[in-house]
Design a protein around this nucleic acid. Structure first.
Length: 282
DNA sequence: ATTTCATCCTGGAGGC
DNA sequence: TGCCTCCAGGATGAAA
């Protein structure tokens, strides 16, 4: 389940390898993943990529963006299991769940692999890589809130003015963009806030602590290479190292690392939620 | 308008 | 062993 730290690590890995490469052919294996205004003409759009160089690899929240010459852009929304692989054997090692193959002029290949097919690819033109939001919205993508690592305290406070559970707010990409289920649970534990608590009941100090912990958890997860549960790998196939640093996620039945109470699992905002009943009071 | 819920999809887990 | 059912989980669009 790639969240922002996983996508950031994918972007880092890809950037080092594919920026400057010239695209040869793009083969779409699963065309149902194609979105955007050029959906009907996807074959033509992908044909236009041929011969162009990759200029940038960018990230916006959980979306990974490849920008080519002439400002053509491929925006990947990775869903549950989407990932990129740079198979050393090229086409010979195509994976069962490969959905798209980008072949480069030098003979290497980039594979997009997505077992559960929740991943989407938006094809769009005229993307300003320094400020992609306008183009993303024009293409029909859901508008995103501020990046979780960049959101300012006051904006976060305004987002909290709702009776929804605070966890639902953290998962709402239109209010704060980048968190998913793992890092929402981890941030709430670090801040000592119960996920089911109505967001608006946090006072100013608690809101500040929560935001600091969100940024802290995300930064540490990025540095650790992300979290691997079943499926995440970076472009080289390596697993993330953050899993053993997790304090609550998927640790139900085990002791809290802060107080020793038994971690519980419940459902909040329709999602499996992990909480220390002693450290995180309602 | 705001919030919840079903849907998509597959592999793995658990029941019998 | 093997078949069956159930479930996770991000984003979306429909329903409440």
């Amino acid at each position: 389940m790639p969240e922002m730290p996983e996508v950031e690590n994918m972007a880092l890995g890809l950037r080092a390898v594919i920026v400057g490469k010239r695209i040869g052919e793009v083969r779409v294996v699963t065309r149902a993943m194609i979105r955007g205004p050029h959906r009907r003409q996807w074959r033509r759009f992908l044909g236009e990529l041929a011969g162009r160089r990759i200029e940038r690899v960018a990230r916006r929240a959980k979306r990974l963006i490849l920008v080519t010459e002439a400002d053509l852009a491929l925006v990947f929304q990775l869903g549950m299991t989407g990932k990129f692989l740079l198979p050393p054997g090229g086409a010979a090692s195509q994976h069962k769940h490969t959905r798209l193959v980008m072949a480069f002029g030098d003979g290497t290949e980039l594979h997009f692999v997505d077992m559960r097919r929740f991943g989407r690819l938006w094809c769009l033109r005229d993307l300003d890589a320094d400020d992609p939001d306008a183009a993303l919205e024009a293409a029909g993508m859901t508008p995103l809130g501020p990046e979780a690592l960049r959101i300012r305290r006051q904006v976060f406070g305004e987002a909290l003015r709702t009776q929804r559970p605070v966890k639902a707010l953290l998962l709402d990409q239109t209010r704060i963009a980048g968190l998913g289920n793992i890092y929402a649970d981890e941030s709430l534990w670090a801040a000592g806030v119960h996920p089911a608590r109505a967001a608006a009941t946090l006072d100013g100090e608690q809101a500040g602590v929560l935001l600091r912990q969100i940024k802290n958890v995300l930064r540490r997860a990025i540095r650790a290479g992300g979290t691997t549960f079943s499926d995440f790998r970076n472009a080289y196939g390596d697993m993330g190292r953050f899993r053993r640093r997790l304090k609550v996620y998927q640790r139900h039945g085990e002791p809290c690392k802060r107080c020793g109470a038994t971690i519980e699992r419940l459902v909040v905002a329709g999602r499996g939620t992990h909480v220390c009943p002693r450290c995180q009071r309602l």
